[in-house]
Structure formats: structure tokens, C-alpha cells
Design a protein around this nucleic acid. Structure first.
Lengths: 344, 344
DNA sequence: CTGAAAGCGCTTACAG
DNA sequence: CTGAAAGCGCTTACAG
């Protein structure tokens, strides 16, 4: 930290105090070609003394803002902090800063949040919401480096980082099967709008679930709910209130799984009667009181990779890259062998 | 959303297409004085057609960026999303956008995150981290509207929004007392650096705790830990591993309380033996499996008030305002009457 | 190696 | 009511 705040000081003041031209100061700032060590030292000393900080807006008019933006659909989802932490860590030591714009709760506000970042001329954008229309992103990516997290569509103009949701869902079902469950339920969010397109994480997980269920020959059911904990609880209550045989429930993401655990707790059911698997392995899942089995897809890694891809784009790469993260099941106490299961 | 991305279109293109001057377009954009309805309609039509979006950087050079910034010390703390949601809601419908800059994990990075926002010439900043030196903030506030959340120091140049931590802590102790507890422990984070100054939320809670304990004449102990769940768990393990009498534990914030609940769970203790109270009433506290008694201080309200204060400053207010939020105890199952308590 | 000049895209007095 | 001009603080060719 500079000891002074000094925001009303401009490059002109520094130039004057150092007795050089403004251009020379700029070159020192940017480590540009052609400055003598003495000039550099002299200018740097004045910069430090005055506590000068370059205005990013002015820089933005001429090129780079040294800022990367992350759009977040729902700030309350505990999976996203992991992505941010991964991105921040990957950026530390670089000249770039991270800013986050949370999408509003209403329809279409996800794309608006991305637009807010573009308006501020960030040098690259990480898009997390799967609700942003891919075609629109494709256009935007012509003008600014873009990484989309979680989408499976192979774009030609932007990069993607995505968990292998097909594998993750089948691992979840396989885990329930291995414990002895023969009846499974998939709880996922009702799809609509841009979110109903194929290629969303939830869509692909549903496909993976269906496939695994078919291959393993399980009794299966799918329950669609609103994408929040309370709706998941309600859906699970309906499902579990008259339970005749053990069931393994695979929730499309941890927040839904927590809602299911609510219902399980309220009904006094045990994991042997109703096993629950979530997705994302959010921090709370590993808490002993929750002990939620969940599919981990390393958000930290996703965030770090997203930043790396953006920096590569800024450095000049033009062909699209699509990275896939391999998920794994974190088995905990919310899943157990069924009471009447043949393997018990 | 405009249907086109159109970021390479400038005000010049709009002016040309509409057959007016650039100044005229700018006036339409800003709803400035002196534009005929016909011109306004004509220009607006061209703007929509071309999908023109003003560059914020260019605006920033001339005045407002229509952006408010929020500095967040630790993106993983589930209390902060509440603040963000309150702020976002309070901003919806206004011309202002919210951006968030998370502080890095290292020493002093909190002030740096604030500086990052200032460098981008946001029109106002909400500072959450209590680690930012007040004197430095005082300077910065001379140049840009600033609201500090959670600090109790009455600044003259910036506004504050703070929970009544003195009251909150005493309510927590009183709650334990009312249940019948006569031995209490306060688990809080070790204070150091700027965070060790008086006036931080944790410092004030500690004072409130001490006062309540004295007034009520309780057996008391204070345990200092690192500010994370794992350290809280370890601290609680040491405390609880050989427990001779019931204890009521007041953790300085929910993340620490969750760590205490970990230890309680691992040791197989019941609330009647070790009751736990947290602070912040984060979302997970109300989950039936957690059911953590916690002091609520409405983060949503704090965020909304912070934004309102910033907008007031932008509108011209210059004298500092200090808002206080009243906390209340949300009693849940993690606290209970002690086994051998005289009131049981 | 160093400096003077042009220009990025806006907004805001100022003239007409 | 409308337009031409200046200028915000930078960086980047371009001359010296």
C-alpha cells in the first residue's frame, strides 16, 4: 500500500516533479522499451513519494484495463466462492485484478451482468451462469476474451471449462448402486428458457443419470423442483412421506441436497432408508452434522483454469480451448446400505 | 438486453446515423436539459437499432462511472452474500451498477482491494473488512463516498453501518443464562494488526460478553483461535474433551460456531451438555441438521442501508451518518437447558 | 534514450 | 433547441 491515497495526482504531476515528460513516466509505468535505469529509478521514486496511482479509466481509453471480470448468477451459492478463490490465486502476482458482478434475481439479468462487465472494458470475462444465451456469448466473444464455465456446448469463439457431468452423474448413481440401492430418484431443477437448452450442467447430469439407471436396470423416478432449498425440501417431503422401500436420492446440486436432508431429518428417516447424494461438494457438505455425500468437481481448479485461459487469450491465442474437469464422489454418512438391500 | 452486442459502436456512429451532433446524443443519453422530444425519439431509435452502449471508461474520464464498489474480505463467509443481496436490491431501478472486489488472503490485501476500486473511479465504496486502517480510510473518504460496515469508530469523513454488537453479545449470554447456564465460554478470533484496534465487531462483542458475564455473575473463560472453522473445532475439542459441567459457548461468528458444533458432534455431546450460540445467523444455521442458535443482524438490511448512504453522499450530503442495526437472538436446538442446571 | 503530439470516447460549458 | 470545441488522463507511434 502507498502511504498516501493520492488519487488527484496525475501523470502530469509526476512528470513535473521528476522533471521529465509524461510519456517518459508512462513508459516507466508500463516497463516499456527504452528507459534508462537512472530515469526509471528517478521516476519510480517520485511515484512512490507522491503515492501516484494511474487512473484505470484513462488506461481503458487506450487499451488494457488490467481487469478480469467474473459474472456470478447467484451470490448465495457456496460453490462459487471456490471458483473465485481459484481465480484470485491464479491471478496473484500478475498485473490483473478481479472484479465480480452478481446477476440480479430476475429474468435475463445474467446476460446483463456480463454486459456490465463488457461496458467497463474488462480484458476478459468468466461467465458462470448457464442462463446466458450461447449465441449472444458467441457474438460477444468476437470482441473480448471469454470463458464459459459449466456449459458443454463446444463454442468456436469462446473457451469453456466444464466438469464431466455425464461421468459425475453416473458416479453418483453407481455409488448408490454399490451400496445396494435398487430404487433411485433424481431431484433436479425445472428447466426453462435458455436453461432448458441441452448442454447445461443440469441437463447433462440428467442424461448421465438416465443412462446409468438404464445400464444398471434400476427403478427410477425424476422430480423437478424450483432451484432452491425450500422447494427441494417440499419435493422430497412429497416423495418420502409414505416411503415403502429404501431409496437413493441424487440431487442435482448441494443446495437441493440440503433441502432433501431437511425432509429426511423432519421425517426422522435414516440414511439406510433414504440416502442422499449432492453435487459440488460445497464446504458445508463435509461438516459432521451434515456429512453429505457429494460429487466433487474442484471449483478452485475451475477458477484457476478459467483465468489461465483468459490470460492465454490476452497473450494472443485465438482458437477455442475446452477443458474438462474429472469429478469424484466424496462418500459420507448421508448415504448408506439400504435396510432391506440385498448387499446388507 | 440489446439484441446486438455492438461494443465497437461509439457515440460518433450514433450521431452520424441519426444525423445529429455527438453532443446531442450525449444529452439524450444523460437526460440532459434541452433536447426536443423528436430528437430524443430519433436518437433513441438509432441507439436501440445499433445496440450502442456507452463506454464506462470514457464516462469515467468526465465524471461518473455509475458504479458502486463493495470490498469483501473473505468471499467464503456466508454472511456477505446477504449484504450483497441487500445492496443489489436497493440498487435495482437506479442507474448504478454494483461490482465486488474480493480481498486476497494475505496481509494488507483488504486495503488493496479498496484501492483497486478507487483506481477504477467507482462513485462510492462499501468497505466490509475491519482490517483496513481507519486513518487511511479517513483520507480516502475525502475523495470518494465511503461506507464502512461493522466498524464502531465514529468517523467524521465516512459513514458507517454497524450492528449493535454490544447488545448482540449480551443477548447471547442472556439467552444462555435464561436457559440455566452458569458457566459460559467465549470463542473468538485472535486479534492482531489493524484488527486488534478497539471498535472491531469482534472486539466489541468481546466487551459485551465480558460485561454481561460480570453483571450476571457467571463462570467465564475466553478462547482465542484463528478465524476459521478448523481452528474453532480444535479449540473446542481442547475445551470440551474433558467436560465436567455443562457449558454455554458463544462463538463470535457462525463459522466458528460451526467448528464448535463439529467438536460437539465428534465428542457425542448434547446441547444440554454443550450449548452453542453463533453470530450472523447465516443461512446454514437454520438448517434442521445444524439448527444453530445465532444472533441475527440482518445483512440484507445492512447492504441496503449502505447503498442508500452512498447514494445520499453522491447526491450531495457531506456530514457523516452512523446507522446502527439492532440484533436479535434466533433460538434453535443447539442451545438447551443444562443437564444439571438449577432451572432444569 | 527522451520528448512533443495525437487520439481513445465521452460530457460539458459555450455560442449560435 | 442544437452543434462545435475543449478537455478528462492516459499510451503509443513518431521525431529528434
Amino acid at each position: 500500500m502507498a502511504t498516501r491515497v493520492g488519487s488527484s495526482i496525475t501523470i502530469r504531476d509526476v512528470a513535473r516533479a521528476a522533471g521529465v515528460s509524461r510519456g517518459a513516466v508512462s513508459k516507466v509505468l508500463c516497463n516499456a522499451y527504452g528507459v534508462s535505469p537512472e530515469m526509471k529509478a528517478k521516476v519510480q521514486a517520485v511515484i512512490d513519494e507522491l503515492g501516484y496511482r494511474p487512473r484505470i479509466s484513462a488506461r481503458g481509453m487506450r487499451g488494457s484495463t488490467y481487469t478480469l471480470g467474473v459474472e456470478i448468477p447467484n451470490i448465495s451459492n457456496p460453490f462459487f466462492p471456490k471458483i473465485i478463490n481459484g481465480a484470485t490465486a491464479a491471478l496473484s502476482g500478475s498485473r490483473y485484478q478481479l472484479i465480480i458482478v452478481p446477476a440480479g434475481p430476475d429474468h435475463d439479468e445474467d446476460a446483463e451482468a456480463v454486459q456490465v462487465l463488457a461496458d467497463r472494458q474488462v480484458d476478459g470475462i468468466v461467465v458462470i451462469s448457464s442462463k446466458v444465451p450461447p449465441a449472444w456469448l458467441e457474438d460477444l466473444a468476437e470482441q473480448i476474451p471469454l470463458v464459459m464455465l459449466g456449459r458443454h456446448d463446444p463454442s468456436v469463439s469462446y473457451d469453456t471449462v466444464v466438469g464431466d457431468d455425464l461421468l459425475g452423474a453416473s458416479l453418483a448413481v453407481q455409488h448408490l448402486y454399490d451400496l445396494g440401492h435398487r430404487r433411485v430418484v433424481h431431484l433436479t431443477q425445472a428447466q426453462r428458457g435458455a436453461d432448458a437448452l441441452p448442454g447445461t450442467p443440469h441437463g447433462v447430469r440428467l442424461t448421465g443419470y438416465d443412462e446409468a439407471v438404464r445400464i444398471l436396470g434400476l427403478k427410477s423416478e425424476t422430480v423437478m423442483v424450483e432451484p432452491d432449498q425450500a422447494s427441494a425440501r417440499d419435493g422430497a417431503m412429497r416423495l418420502l412421506s409414505d416411503l415403502h422401500e429404501p431409496v437413493g436420492i441424487f440431487a442435482a446440486f448441494d443446495e437441493l441436497a440440503l433441502g432433501v436432508l431437511e425432509a429426511v431429518g423432519e421425517l426422522g428417516l435414516r440414511p439406510a432408508q433414504a440416502s442422499v447424494v449432492g453435487y459440488d461438494d460445497t464446504e458445508i457438505a463435509s461438516h459432521p452434522l451434515m456429512s453429505l455425500t457429494s460429487v466433487n468437481q474442484s471449483g478452485t481448479q475451475m477458477g484457476a483454469i478459467a483465468v489461465r485461459l483468459l490470460l492465454e487469450r490476452i497473450a494472443g491465442r485465438t482458437e477455442a480451448v475446452h477443458e474438462v474437469i474429472t469429478p469424484r464422489v466424496m462418500a459420507r454418512n448421508s448415504t448408506a446400505a439400504p435396510l432391506a438391500g440385498r448387499d446388507t
